[in-house]
Amino acid sequence: MIATLLSPRFLRNALPALSLTVLLLAIFQLQPRTMSYFGLNLLLNLALPIAFATIAQMCIITVNDLDLGIGSYVGLVAAIGATWLNETPLLGVAALLGCILIYAALGALIHLRNLPSIVVTLGMSFVWLGMALLVLPTPGGTVPGWIRAIMTLKTPFLPFTIYAAVAVGVIVHFGLMRSAYGTVLRGAGGNPRSVARAGWSLLRTKVTMFALAGFFGMLSGLSLIGLTTSADANIALRYTLLSIAGVILGGGEFVGGRISPIGAVIGAMTLTLAASFLTFLRLPPDWQIGAQGGILIVVLAFRAVINRAEARR
């Protein structure tokens, strides 16, 4: 039993949940009042948009690519959400669907021309940001009431964010980890040649994953404006780096299709909490992102130690 608990594989899988628990306990210790409905709501308020962005990034990482434009894409969605979607809902929906189509097309372009995804998505980050500025030149806009209503839902026992985050993790887990086609999608990240030899189209897997990323990025933007009530093209630029960090914190690997949707959600929550943690430590908020980076490094260091222990066996 103890041997299982100490086995590298178990430790590696438990690491994301473990780091979240440790952080949460530390916060409860420092400020017992957070152990309440409102306390948790305050702590995890912004976790949901980050979780969606992290899931989007994870979809891209599954097929061995990286999205450096997701942050500005979330900003564009936020801008569309706070303008067109409110004023002319049909145009808003069409624009959002168009964005997802562009994502799918990016996947096809990267696959067919064998391009480095970093550069393509970096270029797209300019495009998304520019489009967001065109849609919404100055911060503001009005968020459709229904989005606001969903995001401020009063749920029993625990804040809405927690239910929603769990639901997202579980749904994506079933979609990617348990479903039949999800298996092929991950296989395409693990050993593309073997998947192609088994008769699957690699173009289709890549387009699917990029379209999914576009979809979850859209959810990220919409849930974000539901909380902030107004939008700004630059609102989510930090999400690019946060989402990558969230995937890695959640136990995902950079290459090889090794991902964990539930881990990614946990990673996103850990990053959100890390920011709040400092406030309770009475450290200046300046150290917020530093703490996020520090946690990332510590967790990766643990993982390196575990992997080495495994290699030695």
Partner: peptide
Amino acid sequence: GIRLVMTGLIIITVIT
């Protein structure tokens, strides 16, 4: 806005 979109498209065109 236009400026950024142009910059992005140029990077993508160059790499493609």
